[in-house]
Each structure stands twice: as structure tokens, then as C-alpha cells.
């Protein structure tokens, strides 16, 4: 087996209790479904003194699908998002993304919050301690160079969570909670501001802060969808992904939001694609032209299967097809 390092497990029943546990021991980490963190711990990437289990916290599993304002608890399982008929209708991109994370078994375990906070990934990083010791360590963990791009001063590990680009396209906000001076502190951020395009920093979470919920705007008439490229049609992480949301109003495109995943250290909003389409009629040639712009601003390095060039190509093809489907 690949035994876990030792730690103390806390099993709080409320969010406040969880936040207090986290703030009490520096270096402690939250664990939700465990499908990312436990793998990394078995690989020796993390050795926290305390793990705070979030799965017993009822309030994190709440969802509120009230019209006009959808609120999803961070503890909601991906399988729930995948199967929810309301979501499939109003926020298809999210349901579709949840349904292609890993495999159905992992969707039964993984949570929305865990998915959003998924560590960035790299072939030189997501390996056993033995492997990394043999290869040499890298910037992200224990070393001084990037194994994938030795000349670079930064880490290019890939944002590989599937729900993040979907939620970015849907214009979602995250609600963050922390325990501050004896009181619960909450803040809300658009998802674009939650992520940092850096393989190491990756999210703007403060120490002992948790994602407690995701807030989704509801705009009637919005259609959205998600496309993912991977080698196998199950289990595999994305090598590229695209999410888009839009409305067709009076024959023109409105509220266009497009995001790409797995091509950088954060999901990227495809602003040029969006700008080109906004207010225009959904003409196939224009959609194609806009799709060509979707990978502007992403410069992946070779740290995954498949070449960076091909992954970007796939994003453009998927984008054009997705847009065409959404306006059909």
C-alpha cells in the first residue's frame, strides 16, 4: 500500500468549529472528499499535522436553487451536481463539468469545494517521493528549478479542476469563510479573482480560510456548456477544456462568457473571444473566428501528456463546436 503519513484528524460538525480547528494549528489542512489531498499525501507532497475533515458539516452540503440566486455548498458532491435536473437545465456547464471529472466513482466522493481548490498538476510533481527524489525536486516542492521549463522562474503546474472553467463562464462567485478575532469572517469573490495564474500560489485563500459556498447568477435564457479533452474518456484529468455561457436575444449574442481550463495555472477568461462575440449575430464564421482567439494568453509547457500545441488546438476546436451547439 501507499500508507498515509501520520496526522491528527479533526471531525468538526459545524463550519465555525472547522475554521477554529484550522486556525489553531498552523499547517493544518481541510479535507473534503479526499480524492486529491490524500493522493498527494500518499505521494509525500503534504505532511500536515492536522487534517480537518469537512464531510461531517451539514451546512456545507446545503444547496439553494431559489430562482434568481443559486447557492451551492462547498461540500456538495460532484455526483449531485451532475445529476441535478435544475442545474442541468439552468447551469448546464457546471453539471456537464461535474459529470466528466475523473470517473463516476470519484464523482461520488469529490466535492465542489475540493474541486475548486484542487492542487495544480504537473508530471514532475504528482509523483511518489521515490520518483521525485530520483528526478530531482522542483520549485513547487522542495527544489530550486522548474523541471518542465528549467529556464523559467515560475511554476507552470496546470489548473486541472473541471468545474472551475465552467463556473468562471457562468460568472460564479465563491464565498470564503475564516475565523478572525473570535468571529466568523465572510467574503465573496468572483472566481477570476479567486485564482492566481501561478502553479504554486494558485488560489487567494488566506491561511485557515475555507470555501463555504459557490454563488451563481441566474439569467433567464442563458445557455451554457462544457467540453473536455482527455485521452481516455474516463478517469483522466483534462488536457484542455472549454466552458461557455451565452444568451441569444433579438438575434444577437448577449452575456457571452468563455473560459478555458487546463492550459494555464488558472482557468482563463477568453476575453478576446467574448469581446468579438458580444452583441453580434451568431454567424458560424464569426463563431469560428472567435474560437481561434480562445487560447490567446495561454502558454502551457510540456508537463502533461500530449503537446502544448495540440492541447491549444483542441481548445480551439472544442470552443468552436461548443459555441455552435449553444447557438443551435
Amino acid at each position: 500500500m501507499m500508507p498515509l503519513p501520520t496526522f491528527r484528524l479533526e471531525r468538526p460538525a459545524t463550519l465555525v468549529e472547522a475554521l477554529r480547528c484550522l486556525s489553531e494549528t498552523p499547517g493544518s489542512l481541510p479535507v473534503a472528499g479526499g480524492t486529491d489531498l490524500l493522493v498527494s499525501m500518499k505521494h509525500g507532497l503534504f505532511d500536515p499535522p492536522v487534517l480537518v475533515n469537512l464531510s461531517g458539516i451539514e451546512e456545507l452540503r446545503r444547496t439553494n436553487l431559489a430562482p434568481g440566486n443559486v447557492e451551492l455548498g462547498a461540500g456538495v458532491r460532484l455526483a449531485t451536481l451532475r445529476d441535478d435536473p435544475e442545474l442541468r437545465r439552468g447551469h448546464a456547464a457546471l453539471a456537464e463539468a461535474a459529470g466528466v471529472v475523473a470517473s463516476p466513482l470519484l464523482q461520488n466522493m469529490g466535492t465542489l469545494g475540493g474541486n475548486l481548490c484542487l492542487d495544480t498538476r504537473c508530471r514532475y510533481y504528482n509523483q511518489s517521493a521515490f520518483w521525485r527524489n530520483s528526478r530531482g525536486y522542483c520549485l513547487k516542492r522542495g527544489g530550486t528549478i522548474c523541471q518542465a521549463a528549467p529556464a523559467a522562474k515560475r511554476c507552470f503546474a496546470v489548473s486541472s479542476c473541471d468545474t472551475a472553467p465552467a463556473l468562471t463562464a457562468l460568472g460564479a462567485q465563491v464565498r470564503l469563510a475564516r475565523w478572525e478575532d473570535g468571529a466568523l469572517g465572510l467574503r465573496e469573490l468572483p472566481l477570476e479573482q479567486f485564482y492566481v495564474e501561478d502553479g504554486i500560489e494558485r488560489v487567494t485563500l488566506r491561511p485557515a480560510e475555507l470555501v463555504s459556498a459557490v454563488l451563481l447568477p441566474v439569467t433567464p435564457g442563458t445557455r451554457s456548456g462544457f467540453r473536455k479533452y482527455r485521452v481516455r474518456d474516463s478517469i483522466d484529468y483534462p488536457l484542455a477544456s472549454v466552458a461557455a455561457a451565452l444568451r441569444v436575444e433579438d438575434g444577437v449574442l448577449r452575456g457571452v462568457r468563455v473560459a478555458v481550463g487546463a492550459l494555464a495555472s488558472a482557468p482563463l477568461l477568453a476575453v478576446e473571444t467574448m469581446a468579438l462575440l458580444e452583441g453580434q449575430p451568431p454567424d458560424p464564421a464569426l463563431l469560428a473566428e472567435a474560437a481561434e482567439l480562445v487560447t490567446k494568453g495561454s502558454k502551457p509547457v510540456k508537463n502533461q501528456a500530449s503537446s502544448p500545441t495540440y492541447r491549444r488546438h483542441m481548445a480551439r476546436v472544442m470552443c468552436r463546436r461548443l459555441l455552435a451547439d449553444l447557438v443551435a
Binding site: S103, R123, S128, W131, S134, R232, D233, S234, D236, A305
Partner: peptide, 22 residues
């Protein structure tokens, strides 16, 4: 095998054998 001798795909995640949907 990577230059250096490490396996590029030392797991059933990276060494891809077909799943039921493939």
C-alpha cells in the same frame, strides 16, 4: 522512459489502459 531514467507514466492514471468507455 524520460531522459534521466524515470518512468513518464508510473501509475494507472498516467499509463492509460482502456476503460469501459474507451
Amino acid at each position: 522512459v524520460l531522459e534521466g531514467g524515470q518512468l513518464a507514466c508510473p501509475s494507472l492514471l498516467e499509463y492509460r489502459i482502456p476503460t469501459a468507455v474507451d
